[in-house]
Amino acid sequence: MTPHHFLYLATILFGIGLLGLTIRKNLFVIYLSIELMLSSVNLILATFSRANNSQDGSIMALLMIAVIASEASIFLAIIVYLYKSTKTIDTETFTNLRNEESI
């Protein structure tokens, strides 16, 4: 059991989250992928804290959890709002940035 195992695992989770972010169009899955990536960073922080016998990493992870929570609340509010307005959670429909005349 070395810290490397934890770190490799966290990296794989991060990669899976990134993959989910790019291939899925479902806004919920994208949200969950972001959560997953943040959690994998959390795991890395905890691992380093344990390996260095220092509480600072743990505290950073703790603060991260708070950040994850606030991010979740905002993201979910946005999802609810978008679904109420457009009755869909397909990211392909949200193209307000586009200037229709120029294409």
């Binding site: 990134l18 972010l21 790019t22 169009k25 994208i30 990211t91 392909e92 949200f94 193209t95 307000n96 940035l97 586009r98 120029s102 294409i103």
Partner: peptide, 17 residues
């Protein structure tokens, strides 16, 4: 090139990646 600017944020994320 303009068609790559599809206003779809997902693609922008893809470009960033």
């Amino acid at each position: 090139f303009a068609s790559s600017q599809s206003a779809n944020v997902r693609y922008y994320a893809l470009y960033m990646i």
